[in-house]
Nucleic acid binder design. Structure first.
Lengths: 150, 150
DNA sequence: CGTTAGGATGAGAAGCATTATCAACAAGCT
DNA sequence: AGCTTGTTGATAATGCTTCTCATCCTAACG
C-alpha cells in the first residue's frame, strides 16, 4: 500500500502535477472523508458537492495521488480499488467494516517483522505485504441484530 | 479467503454439485498446477489441453469450488481473482512471487491471534482477514539482476 | 502584462473481466 | 427407460477502468 514501489531512477526531473481546480477538489473531498471510497463514490460525492470533475479525471487524479504515496490504496472484497487519505504516512494497516465502510488504522510492528522474516527465510526480495482485517463494526453489529427469531 | 463466510442456516439440504465432465476437467487442471491462476488462464490451459469448458462455466465452477472452500481465492495486484487448490485445508496465507507467480504456503498462528485480538479490541465481529506477502523469489531475483553496474 | 508550450481535462468510445440470460443438455433417481 | 432438475454453452449485458483526442488552462517566459 503506502510503501513506494516506484524505483524510478533518480535521473529525470520530478514532474510535479499542476495545481488545477480538479486536483484541489479531489484533495478537499478526500479531506472530508474518514473512510475508504471507490473512485466512483468520490466522483459522486464531488458532484453532489457542486464540484464538477469528470469521472475519467477522478480516476487519473486518484491514481496519481496513489503513485505519489499521498493516499492509501487497497482493494475491497470485490477487487475494486479504494482510496483514502491517511493521517499517518508510515506503513500501517486497516480494520474495515464490511457494512458501513468505517476504517480504523492499526499498526502492527510484530506483523511487519514477521512478514519480513518470512520473506527472507524463503529468499524473497523486494517484498511488500497486505494485511487487512474485515468485519462488522459494533454499531452495525447492533443494528443488524435487533431481533433474533428462534 | 478460506474461512466460510456463509452463515447459511442449517436448514436446507446440502445441495451437492453434480459430477460433470466440466467439473472434473477443472479439478484435474487445478491438480496439475502449483501456482495461482486467473479464471481466464485456467480456461485457456484447459482449452490447450483438449478439454473444452466454456469460459462462463469455468467462472461458475471456480466460484463454486471457492464457496465450498475447496480452492483458495485471493486477488492479484490488478484486483483479479486468482485461484489455487491448496494442499492444506486449514487457514493459511501465501508468499507470492510477483514475477513468476510461484506461491509458498505459510502459516502464522501468531498473526491469526493478533488479527482476532485487534478486531475484538475494536468490537468488530464476523471477522476475517487477508495477509499476503508479495515479492520476488530467489530464482527471478537472480535472473533479473545479472550485472550490477556501479 | 501579453504570449506561448505543453500538461490537464472532458466526453465518449473502447477494453476487459465478470455476471446474467435462457434454451438445450445430461446426471442421478425411480 | 423416463423424468426431474441442476448444468452447460453462447451470447448479451453490466460495470469498472483505461484510452483517445480536441480543447482548455497552468506555469513559465518575454
Amino acid at each position: 500500500m503506502c510503501p513506494g514501489g516506484t524505483p524510478r531512477a533518480a535521473a529525470a526531473a520530478p514532474p510535479e502535477p499542476r495545481v488545477t481546480k480538479q486536483r484541489v477538489a479531489v484533495g478537499d473531498a478526500l479531506d472530508t472523508l474518514n473512510d475508504f471510497v471507490t473512485t466512483q463514490e468520490l466522483h459522486r460525492l464531488m458532484a453532489d458537492d457542486g464540484a464538477s470533475v469528470s469521472l475519467a479525471t477522478t480516476y487519473r487524479i486518484l491514481q496519481s495521488l496513489a503513485d505519489d504515496g499521498l493516499v492509501d490504496v487497497l482493494r475491497n472484497g470485490d477487487g475494486e480499488a479504494i482510496y483514502r487519505r491517511c493521517s499517518v504516512s508510515a506503513h500501517h494497516h486497516h480494520l474495515l467494516c464490511r457494512n458501513c465502510g468505517k476504517a480504523v488504522e492499526i499498526e502492527a510492528p510484530a506483523v511487519e517483522a514477521w512478514a519480513a522474516k518470512t520473506a527472507a527465510t524463503h529468499g524473497f526480495t523486494s517484498v511488500n505485504h497486505t494485511v487487512e482485517i474485515f468485519g462488522i463494526c459494533p454499531e452495525c453489529s447492533a443494528a443488524s441484530q435487533p431481533a433474533t427469531q428462534p
